[in-house]
Design a protein around this nucleic acid. Structure first.
Lengths: 207, 207
DNA sequence: CCGCATCCCCAAAGATACTG
DNA sequence: CAGTATCTTTGGGGATGCGG
């Protein structure tokens, strides 16, 4: 674990627990539910295996993550968040909302790892989404929102289906631009979703 | 600046901007208003001067901080948050609230730097505080809350004055324990403050 | 004094190979 | 599959220097 700040400050203490590099991204992955070591490696492009092992050790020691062995015959180990770890969701949501304001559309160098769409929807839109069945498709990536719950993959009986490339989805979420995506179904309900969970892009990118 | 994550994720992007070690603590200091380089060094015990310079450079490049030269005759340089930087407040508040739940009372090794009380009050209590004039004293450290605004130092005409040592203040804020502090004035108003902005300590420390 | 830059050292991160 | 071992690189911590 990285060195502690040793200041009597709630935020410094929070950073002692989850402020190390990669820690919050590991937690982001575990927000969807328990995952195996290898699953984590796949969803965290660029992380070294030793780093992941170290982070999981630290987070476990800090009471944020627990290690569990699945009952036989599966018998593989999974990592999952503790109750305390799950309570990070509001903080992560605010941080993600803040980041979204200067994120911009995906570029060449951005890794569009499996699950990016579900991740973004879960943390940015899910908490305030209206009731309804939404399905979003960005190339191979498909994620749905059912009454405020994010579901990986397609759903049947969707009220709205949105299809486009990552840039199109971005322009929809951030700029409310409907031109670069194909929309089938209840457009008003989609408007309600965009109204309820706006990424609130107010600040231009400065750099 | 540390290496970027290069993932298309709003949170990963936020961490690219303010996820480096010390960055959020620098921003915490600037939340109260512009500060000079040396003021920052004093309030961030343990930071290397080169690290602080690097962080300020990075944050400036990321559009979170600006550098300004005061008009003569002062002519000294100050750093202050941009509008975008100030918008980090909700994220920092949530993170601090989360951290507060496992912070515990101050220990020997915790540095009780100047301003810790005002900091904690500002980020944890100010956003939901009821109208009223509160003054808190923990040894040499005095901070006040006037209608939801944190003010350094004592105020005249306070509705409530609370006096105690850091442990006592902690037990008041976190455990609602009134025994270790001396309270003068309107106890009901103090109750309202504690109700409105509870640190919500629900999870026991696991380590 | 203020605002850094430089230097040295070590700990953590990255990359890769390998093992129970 | 789930990590450990090993090596290299990079950034942080601490002290000091130095121009404005």
């Amino acid at each position: 674990m990285a060195r502690r700040y040793e200041q009597y400050c709630p935020m410094a203490h929070a950073l002692d627990l989850v402020g190390d590099r990669w820690a919050l991204l590991v937690i982001r992955e575990l927000m969807h539910g328990p995952k195996r070591y290898t699953d984590l490696v796949e969803h965290l492009p660029g992380i070294g295996t030793n780093i992941l092992a170290a982070r999981l050790r630290d987070l476990e020691g800090n009471g944020v993550v627990t290690r569990r062995t699945l009952p036989p015959p599966a018998a593989s180990k999974v990592y999952e968040l503790t109750d305390y770890g799950r309570e990070l969701r509001p903080a992560m949501r605010e941080l993600a909302l803040w980041g979204a304001r200067s994120l911009g559309p995906p570029t060449e160098s951005d890794e569009l790892f499996e699950g990016w769409l579900a991740n973004a929807m879960d943390i940015v839109m899910a908490p305030r989404a209206p009731a309804g069945r939404f399905e979003f498709r960005a190339g191979p990536e498909i994620a749905s929102l059912v009454d405020g719950e994010v579901v990986d993959g397609p759903i049947g009986d969707a009220d709205v289906v949105v299809e486009g490339d990552p840039e199109g989805i971005y322009s929809l979420f951030v700029d409310r631009c409907l031109d670069q995506v194909e929309i089938r179904g209840d457009e008003r309900l989609l408007d309600a979703l965009l109204d309820a969970a706006p990424p609130r892009i107010e600040t231009p990118l400065t750099t």
